[in-house]
């Protein structure tokens, strides 16, 4: 499996897309930190990058990579290797390269300019989101019949997680505003990895605002050790469940 992952990694590095991604992130974060006199404002802009760009690129890259290495996968399948191992090595290769690019592009500048709890949370959240969306993209590409459908569904999923879902939450909160919704919103937030990531960073950034009104409840829940555990567990679930489903589908798929 390690050998296979090494081949996948070698293939990805040769294509230079990941390199471009890392350079892009590095340029963005360096220019943000140098433009803004206040590093916490730069962190705010980086937050948007982490929550929007990172999931998008992770998903699109994963899908394109999957379809591009389709022939390689077919070749491997003719060898005495299990399908699970092949797909897992593909996943490991893609995830490792994406996370490395993210760490080079955003992790290093953030840890240099804001080496505190906010910075660390931002980097961890970014890594978590990369893992989650790579695995969701694997599921989508394994399920879809061709490349166009695969990319289409991945874009739709990205749109859903980063925009439509929050719109739905807003709608639900307004239409049910006569009821006590605080606990329910906690559940709603847990059902979207982007929201989970955003809340864990927000807890470090906007502590004063969060202490007001219902915010105290959110802080109490997500800010406690149990909350951090809960967030991490949800992120792991969001990674594991799509990947496991993808394995199930891939094992039975008529290639």
């Amino acid at each position: 499996m390690l050998k296979l992952t090494r081949y996948v990694l070698y293939d990805i590095i040769r294509s230079r897309v990941v390199l471009a991604y890392a350079v892009f992130l590095l340029l963005v974060s360096l220019s943000l930190f140098n433009l803004e006199d206040n590093p916490s404002k730069a962190i705010l802009s980086l937050l948007n990058i982490v929550l929007i760009v990172v999931p998008l690129i992770s998903m699109i890259f994963t899908t394109i990579h999957y379809y591009n290495s389709y022939e390689f996968i077919e070749l491997m399948l003719s060898q005495p290797l299990s399908r699970t191992r092949i797909l897992l090595s593909e996943y490991a290769g893609v995830a490792i390269s994406m996370i490395t690019a993210f760490l080079i592009g955003i992790g290093i500048p953030v840890l240099i300019y804001v080496p505190d709890a906010v910075g660390a949370t931002l980097v961890l959240t970014g890594c978590g989101l990369t893992l989650v969306f790579t695995s969701i993209a694997f599921l989508a590409s394994v399920k879809a019949r061709d490349k166009a459908r695969g990319i289409g569904s991945v874009l739709l999923l990205w749109f859903y997680f980063s925009l439509i879902y929050d719109g739905l939450v807003l709608l639900i909160l307004f239409s049910l505003s006569d009821y006590p919704m605080e606990k329910f919103t906690l559940l709603l937030a847990a059902l979207n990895p982007v929201d989970l990531g955003r809340i864990s960073i927000m807890l470090k950034l906007d502590v004063s605002a969060l202490m007001g009104y219902t915010g105290a409840l959110y802080k109490e829940f997500f800010g406690s050790n149990a909350g951090v555990l809960f967030t991490s567990a949800m992120m792991v679930l969001w990674t594991a469940v799509p990947l496991w489903t993808a394995l199930l589908v891939f094992r039975k798929k008529d290639l």
């Binding site: 925009l163 807003l170 307004f174 605080e182 955003r198 927000m202 219902t214």
Partner: peptide, 20 residues
């Protein structure tokens, strides 16, 4: 203004939806 009417929506602070 939205938060003033419905404080629970604080959960959406700094989301893409809100900035839009």
């Amino acid at each position: 203004m939205i938060i003033e009417n419905n404080p629970t929506t604080l959960i959406l602070l700094r989301s893409f939806m809100v900035s839009l």
